[in-house]
Design a protein around this nucleic acid. Structure first.
Lengths: 208, 208
DNA sequence: GCTGAACTTGACGCCCCCGTCACCTTCTGG
DNA sequence: CCAGAAGGTGACGGGGGCGTCAAGTTCAGC
């Protein structure tokens, strides 16, 4: 996590040296996130990122070898976290309803908690997809596919094309999430209701 | 349209001059489409595009002022066409079932008809969204929202959050379409069935 | 304090892109 | 067949990004 208290940080008193290092790294990640969100990863240059900090060019290369690794770090810090949270929420539900609703809710809450990262991710989704094999969303879809399959096996969910069902859920959540973020007064409840109602109905129905 | 017979082309015998012009323009658009799909619009340079043709740098500027207008032309030629087709198919259906099914079918058929453009679009969706105000997908979502609203007003569809419903449909179609294209043997019927079943159930259900 | 390691800095050489334009080739209309 | 317009060409100046590295600064530990 970049914004916020930083998870389970080691609560040791750090020396000035170490603190600067953390600060610099964070500054680079923050600046990069903004730049990638604003002009897109492809058009961004290492200089653009550096300009968003008060560091010198050379310093950047003490922390990351190139802009791609910055994106990678950004994804590890955030998208990974989001995935874990959504999956955990989902699995805690015992019913089909809870499975669906809690998963979506966790996702929309995450978007609102860290809108800067959300914007960056949605702006660069295509690039991320094309660039990495374990790209947040694809991995997320695969996990969802697994979980759906397990639900079907357990008799919790009727038979379905789980692969395309998972893709639909991810796509719908992505698109609705994007629209939610555009609202002046984002309402995760409304978003959750909309997609949950849809997929609960869709998943409950037997196939035609 | 780039690939194919080019709609209602004026069947006049053109002079050599005019033919070359058409060919050059097309060559640039084709090359650009490939480059944008491969490395993304942001990272692409005018030179990258030119290298994909056998033209000289200067020639490019006789046809387009910069790479952004090439993208714009690409979108007009294709995404616009796709939108019209999907909407037409959708509106021809008299029942909720047909409305949903025919619309999705038209979309998936389009993807398969012109996979090169599809790849380019999905790779650059975020950029396109951020760059234009009338960005194919957003406009498509708005049209769908209207049509859903009309369906609700006509009593064809139960009450729903039409805005998020439209977003869900677009998102699901996008994501399922992307997966369909990745398959060795893409099956638009399977894709259509998966999303249609889902949304027919979701749209038929009264709200909780 | 003092020293040496750790870190920061920004100028540097190389490379490539941008958009232009003077020159050349090719086609059209007469 | 010719003249002139239309269009193609690619070298050019200006700009800027890339990754490096020698010099300078700052901190930790003694």
């Amino acid at each position: 996590m970049i914004a916020g208290a930083g998870g389970a940080a080691p609560e040791v008193e750090l020396g000035r040296r170490e603190r600067t290092k953390q600060a610099n790294r964070t500054a680079i990640l923050l600046a990069a996130r903004a730049v990638f969100a604003d002009i897109g990863f492809g058009a961004a240059t290492v200089r653009d990122i550096v300009r968003g900090t008060d560091l010198a060019t050379g310093t950047f290369y003490n922390y990351f070898p190139d802009k791609e690794s910055v994106l990678r770090a950004l994804l590890e810090d955030t998208a990974g976290e989001a995935r874990v949270r959504v999956r955990t929420a989902r699995r805690d539900g015992a019913t089909l309803e809870a499975f669906v609703r809690d998963g979506f809710r966790a996702y929309f809450d995450f978007l609102l908690e860290d809108p800067a990262t959300s914007r960056m991710l949605s702006r660069n989704a295509g690039t991320i997809r094309a660039m990495f094999d374990e790209p947040s969303m694809v991995a997320g879809t695969e996990e969802l596919t697994e979980d759906l399959r397990a639900g079907v096996a357990a008799g919790l969910i009727p038979q379905h094309d789980v692969e395309y069902m998972a893709a639909s859920m991810v796509g719908a959540a992505f698109e609705v999430g994007a629209r939610m973020l555009e609202a002046e007064q984002p309402d995760p409840g409304r978003a959750t209701d909309a997609v949950s109602d849809l997929f609960i109905a869709g998943l409950s129905a037997r196939r035609t």
